[in-house]
């Protein structure tokens, strides 16, 4: 579903990504772990077509994402650090607006809005302005926005930030379900105690390079040891 080869990116003279290659199949749930500044967010923004890499190739759903980013964007749902939500629109209006941009309309759009808001436990607050939401509710609305158009590829940058126990458990279940449904899910996180129960793989990113790939045993102890080891290399 996602194939990236030798992705490289510099900001000024500072290399942020250095030849990152990764392949994620349908139904895989992959976590990218690493210290601050390792290049996790840049990698995710390149996969989402928000940033063009300086080198390398990227295809999503067999479409060349660098040549046809417009086509690829139909496939991708992104949860980024920022909410991408308009505070003075209501929760439902935000989703309706984004739904229109993704070509959804009519009953299909309204059904998707209800499904996404119900799924994130925000349906009772659908007519409230987003600016009145707490940090956790805003994060749930952000996730609702990302899954609204039923994307086959889900990219999540630190999605558990700000979520309480119940919302985190709900998101964890959603990510598991998304992978079971055949989606490719890539998540960056530094919270190794949450949401990693159903991982297919964990990648450790350091200084813009993937330095380790873990295919089993995603216990917090193991991942902590890997990250600790990575930090001291």
């Amino acid at each position: 579903m996602i194939r990236a080869e030798r992705l490289g990116k510099r900001y000024g003279v500072r290399p942020v990504l250095r030849g990152v290659s990764l392949e994620v199949a349908r139904g895989e749930f992959v976590a990218v772990l690493g210290a601050n500044g390792a290049g996790k967010t840049t990698l995710l923004r390149i996969l989402a077509t928000l940033v063009r890499p300086d080198t390398g190739t990227l295809s999503i759903g067999d479409v060349d994402a660098l040549r046809q980013p417009q086509r690829v964007r139909q496939w991708v749902g992104l949860v980024s650090h920022q909410s991408l939500i308009y505070g003075d629109l209501t929760a439902a209006e935000n989703l309706r607006f984004y739904g229109w941009l993704y070509g959804l309309r009519g009953e299909q759009l309204e059904a998707r809005i209800e499904w996404a808001l119900q799924r994130m436990n925000l349906w009772p607050r659908r007519n409230d302005r987003a600016r009145t939401f707490s940090r956790g509710m805003m994060q749930r609305l952000t996730i609702a926005r990302a899954i609204l158009h039923d994307p086959p590829v889900l990219l999540l940058d630190e999605p558990f930030t700000g979520l309480d126990q119940s919302a985190a458990a709900s998101l964890s279940a959603l990510l598991h379900e998304a992978a079971l449904e055949g989606r490719a899910v890539i998540m960056t996180t530094h919270e190794i105690h949450r949401g990693l129960e159903h991982l297919s793989r964990a990648l450790i990113l350091r200084d813009g390079q993937i330095v380790h790939e873990q295919r089993k045993d995603f216990s917090p102890q193991t991942l902590t040891a890997l990250l600790h080891d990575d930090a001291h290399r």
């Binding site: 989402a48 928000l50 417009q70 139909q74 992104l78 991408l84 939500i85 308009y86 505070g87 941009l101």
Partner: peptide, 14 residues
């Protein structure tokens, strides 16, 4: 605010 421009840039259009 909230980096909403990214939300616009993510949508499948020119």
């Amino acid at each position: 605010v909230n980096q909403c421009l990214d939300g616009l840039l993510l949508a499948p259009y020119d």
